[in-house]
Structures are given as C-alpha cells and as structure tokens.
Design a protein around this nucleic acid. Structure first.
Lengths: 226, 226
DNA sequence: CCTACCGATCGGTAGG
DNA sequence: CCTACCGATCGGTAGG
C-alpha cells in the first residue's frame, strides 16, 4: 500500500504494481449502487428489445452506460454471454415474482381448497405484469431472441422456464376437471401462453386498456367467466 | 442485331453494344420457371426464418440459389427490400388462401345463414396451415422480423394485415351474440391471434399433434365446444 | 475501465 | 448475372 517507487524499482524485472485485472469477484459486483454490471444488463435489455440482438452493437450498450467500446468485455465474456445474462436474470425475477403472488393468493384465501379460477387469474395477472409492466424488458428479450443463444444456454433456460410454468399445470387440470376448461390441458397451456406472450407485440400502455381488463378478458376467453 | 465489330467501332466514343443492365421488367421476371427472383424470395424466407434477418447475409442467400455475392442486388434494390418482398408475398398468398377457404365454406353450407362456429373453425384451420404448413416460411418471417422494415413498409403491410383480419371480426361478433364467445371481441381477436401465432415457436410437425387436432383444441379453448 | 488496435464480415456498387 | 472491389462496422483483445 505504501510501497515507494524506489522500492518497486528494486524488484528489477518483477511486475510493477497494477490495478487488479479480469472480471470482478461475485460479491464485488453485486454490492451497492456501484453496480456497473447491473447497469449494463438493464441497458442491454432495453436495446436488445428495441433493436434486436444483432442490430445492437456492444458499442451501443457501452455508450448507454457511459463506457468506452471495449469495456463491456470487462464484465461479460462476450456479447452473447450478455444476452444470456439478460434472459437468465429475467427468468429468475419472473419466478420470484410468481411465487410471491401465489403465496399471497394462498394466504388470502379462507378456503382450504383454493379456487382454481382465482389462481389462474393471479397467474395471468402476474404474467401480464412481467411482460408489459414498466421497464420490464428482460422477458420480452428472452421470448424474442432465443435464436441467438447457444444450444446449451437454451437448455439451461428451458429448466428455468419449466420452473416458471410448473404452477400453471395443476391449476389448469383443476379447471378442466370442473368443466371450466374444455381443451386438452397440455395444448391449452401452450395456446394460453401464446395469447399472453403475443401481447408484447400489440399492447400499448397509453391506449386505455389496463392489465386488469386484459386479465378479465383473458379469463372470459379461456374459461367463459371473468 | 447483325452489326459487325467494325461498324460498332466506327461510332467512336459511343457505347459498345452491351447486355441489358438494371433489374428486369416485370413481365420478364414473372414468367416461366426461369424465375430467379422467386428462388431468391423462397431461399431468403427460409434463411430469414432459421437465422433471423440480421444474421443472414446477402451472400448466404446468393449461395443458396447458386449466385455470386453481388447478384441478388440485380433483382432487389437492397437487403431490406428483399425482406419486405418476402413479407408482402406472404400476406398476399395468405389472403388468397383465406378467401378461397371462406368461399368453399360458404358453398358447402346449405343454410342461408352460415354457422359462425364452422366459419371460425375454417379460419383457424387455414391460419394454422399458413403458419405451420410445409415450406411456409413467409408468414413466420413477417411475424418475427417486422422490426427490420421501415415505417412506411410497416404501414403498407398493416393494410394487408387488415384485409386478412377483416373476415374474423363478423364471425367473432356472431359468436359473441350467440353467447359462445364471452370476451370482448376486439381483445379476443388479439388474444386468439396470439395463441395461434405463437404456435410457430413450439409446434413440431414430427411430434404427433396434427393441425386438425390443434384446431379442435383451439375451438374448445375459445368457444367451449369443438 | 481506457487506449489503440486487429481481422473478419458485410451491404452495396462500377463496369462489363 | 459475374468480377473485383470499397468503406463501414463489428466483436473482441493486449496492455496498462
């Protein structure tokens, strides 16, 4: 720390004292607001969503957080590692929000056996929020840029997606058993996710319809009752 | 035609006889199987769908039809003009197929007032075929690469899309009036298209489920009855 | 995290 | 439709 220049010079041929190289340790990058990695993730998500992955250069991302062109590679191995990080962060956050919502829904219910329709409503409402809520670019990026990650990354993501989708299946089975859902559960789940996910393409926050209304209409469409 | 070299040389400074330059006339490019433009369109559609627009180079497309790197620009002004041509061709073909289907459905019916559920079924079945049928890459490209065309191209496409969607609205209104569709018609249409369009992401032709089954389950999900 | 840079690739064009 | 080419941009890296 207090080593003088002359002392350093005595070690002839030894490396001069440098700032640490390489990517920062996990607990370094996660703490505080000096979280440049997080800023990169958020900016990358916004740009990837707006322009697409291929049309966004690492220079664009660097500029968005006030860095020079080469600096994102201090935080991420490659551009596609950055894309995958956006997707993974999006899925982890979505899974966390969904469990919180389901826990709350369960606690609010006075019945031992939860009403399946109410649960589906909670799942759909939360899903719309994840897709369309303000500043939520991570999941849209995951949905529409899956082509640009490697096969093994896709496999890893598929596990997170299974975790996310898991709570939907028993709810749909219950609704099928009670006659509220007529279609085959497996295909219904795929069609329902499609209907919801596609909203990213047309939903306009400024145009009147609220996420609650969207949820009501979805429930009517899929189960015949709000 | 029979002008000799010496005759040509007499016209000092005049342009020597050349093969015609520029893009071919409309009636030239549309006739016969020497339709290189059509081959370019089909190959571009396949590559754009597989790899995405940005990840596909004009060299890839040229190679796919056995051309050299610069030759696609003989047929199309630019790469994005090629993309737009794929989308437009996709929409025109889809509109044509849909009208044919609706005409047939009307002719097959003995009732003056067509059954709305039967019409919706026909529309959905045809839509699945357009999305998932063998070699149909044009519409998937249109659905997932809209970001890469210009605003004015998007406006032009929107007109074609309105034409395509037009027959759906009265059918959905009829089903709403008869109580088979509970949701708001406008939102229902958006959600239904989402459910269908998303199938491009997960449908696997080799995995058992047929387009007819998919249509049945869709009808059950949206109207409660196959 | 910055400076300075490299090799590769890409859309597009002139001229035949 | 081919040949030969150009300018621009891009992901990524060495070294500090």
């Amino acid at each position: 720390m207090d080593m003088t220049v002359s002392q350093a010079q005595i070690k002839a041929g030894a490396a001069a004292p440098k700032r640490p190289r390489g990517r920062p340790r996990k607990n370094e990058e996660d703490r505080g607001d000096g979280n440049r990695r997080g800023e990169l993730l958020r900016s990358a998500a916004r740009l990837f969503r707006r322009q697409g992955f291929d049309a966004t250069s690492t220079r664009d991302i660097a500029a968005a957080v006030g860095m020079r062109s080469g600096s994102p590679f201090y935080h991420f191995e490659s551009k596609s590692a950055l894309l995958y990080a956006v997707m993974e962060e999006g899925m982890r956050s979505a899974i966390a929000k969904q469990s919180a919502v389901m826990t709350t829904a369960a606690a609010a219910s006075t019945k031992v056996r939860l009403d399946a329709a109410m649960q589906l409503r909670a799942l759909i409402r939360n899903h719309f929020n994840i897709l369309l809520g303000h500043g939520n670019d991570f999941i849209p990026v995951m949905l529409y840029e899956a082509r640009s990650i490697t096969r093994s990354q896709r496999t890893a993501l598929a596990h997170l997606q299974s975790t996310y989708e898991a709570p939907w299946t028993p709810v749909l089975h219950a609704l099928h058993a009670s006659g509220h859902l007529k279609a085959d559960v497996k295909i219904a789940r795929l069609l329902i996710f499609g209907a919801l996910n596609w909203s990213v393409q047309w939903f306009d926050r400024r145009k009147g319809v609220s996420l609650d209304e969207l949820t009501d209409e979805s429930m009517k469409l899929f189960t015949g009752a709000p």
